[in-house]
Amino acid sequence: MPRQLYFDTPDAFLEELRAQLNAGIPRRRLRARLPFHLHEAEELLIGRPSRLRYFALGGGLAGFGGGFLLAMLTSVDWPIVTGGKPIVSVPPFLLIGYLLTILIGSLSCFAGFLWLSRLPDPGPLVSDDPFDPRFVLTINDEEAS
């Protein structure tokens, strides 16, 4: 049977977590639920940074390239001189690239977050599993983990 321990304060929770790890319980047997993010818990239980940064980088680059290319290729597609400016007017096209860097970067980060944290999760909705206001440390059995 998995054991569940409840704590009201982050300090008590972290103290217990450290004690469990020091007692030789492997990380994979420990599960945590928190009312707010604790970086220490992340370091103790996972210890590597989130992969979300690749989504930020990928989305940002795709947005920049896509925005610039959109402006450039549509101008080349029907080359008409307006305001005496060159057909490929780099400064204003960079602006479109810049704005789409932010837009696509943010949206891809959000999508990446949903993917990495397995949301939306219908499980808690069906089983009526609420967001606990306390710090919960679950210690799984060897075979269950």
């Binding site: 639920r33 928190l34 992340e42 996972i46 989130s50 397995r118 949301l119």
Partner: peptide
């Protein structure tokens, strides 16, 4: 379906 597990928070 937010439950506040460490994976989500991280």
């Amino acid at each position: 379906g937010w439950t506040g597990n460490l994976r989500q928070w991280r």
